[in-house]
Design a protein around this nucleic acid. Structure first.
Lengths: 100, 100
DNA sequence: ATATCATTTTGGCATATTGCCAAATGACAA
DNA sequence: TTGTCATTTGGCAATATGCCAAAATGATAT
C-alpha cells in the first residue's frame, strides 16, 4: 500500500472533477466522435448564459480534456485525446449494467 | 448536436464526481492492480478518521466504481470493473505530456 | 479608425456542497 | 455477552459552486 500524499492526488483529482458536472459532461459527449464544435454551437443548445459556457470550457481546457483552436472570428473545441472518449465508454458500460 | 437534458447528465456526472477527490482517487489507485484491500488497511495509511474513509468508500460504491465483500470480521473492496484502471491510465497519460 | 461579432475575463452573490469528526448503531465472531 | 470492524447519522464550519451581468479582449470587416 502506497502512502497517501494528499497534494499529489488533489491535482490529479481535478481531471475527474472537471467531468463531474452535467453541462461539462454534455459538452464532452458532443465531442466524443472526435469532431470539433464551435463555442457558439454549445451556447445555442444549452440554456445558460454564454459566459457560463465559456467558463465550463475553460475548466475542461485546464484539465487537459479539451483543446481549442481559434480560427477567424470563432473558437473551436476538440477532445485533447481520443482516450477521453474511452472514459465515456466505461461510464456507459456501468449504466447498462444498472438496468438489469 | 444533441439537446441538453440536465437531469440525465447530472446522474452520469456522479460517476466522475466520485473520482474527483484526493482521498478517493488514492483509494482507487490502490486497487488498480485488481487486488482487493480491507477497509482497515486504508484507515491505517490515510490520516483521517475511519468513519471518513468509510464514507468515501460508500460514495465509490454508489458510483459503481467499487464493490465490497464482507468476509469474517472484515470488509474487502475491489474495482467494480477493470475498465476503471483504464481511466487512471488516461489520466496518467495526460500528466506525462504535461511535463514536456 | 471605427464598428461589429465571438469569446473570455472579472466581480459579485446566493446557495449548495463539502469533508470532517464524534457519537450512535449494526453485524458478526469468539 | 463482550469485543472488533465497519457503517450510519448528526452537525458544523469552511469552501466551493454555478450562474449572471458587465467589462474587456481580439479578430475581422467596413
Amino acid at each position: 500500500m502506497k502512502p497517501f500524499k494528499r497534494a499529489e492526488h488533489s491535482s490529479h483529482a481535478a481531471f475527474f472533477k472537471a467531468l463531474g458536472h452535467p453541462t461539462r459532461l454534455w459538452i464532452v459527449r458532443q465531442l466524443a466522435d472526435g469532431k470539433e464544435q464551435c463555442v457558439c454551437e454549445f451556447v445555442d443548445e444549452a440554456k445558460v448564459d454564454f459566459s457560463t459556457i465559456s467558463q465550463h470550457l475553460s475548466i475542461l481546457k485546464q484539465a487537459r480534456i479539451l483543446v481549442d483552436d481559434k480560427r477567424g472570428k470563432s473558437v473551436y473545441y476538440t477532445l485533447a485525446c481520443p482516450c477521453i472518449a474511452g472514459l465515456l465508454d466505461c461510464l456507459d458500460n456501468r449504466l447498462e449494467k444498472e438496468i438489469k
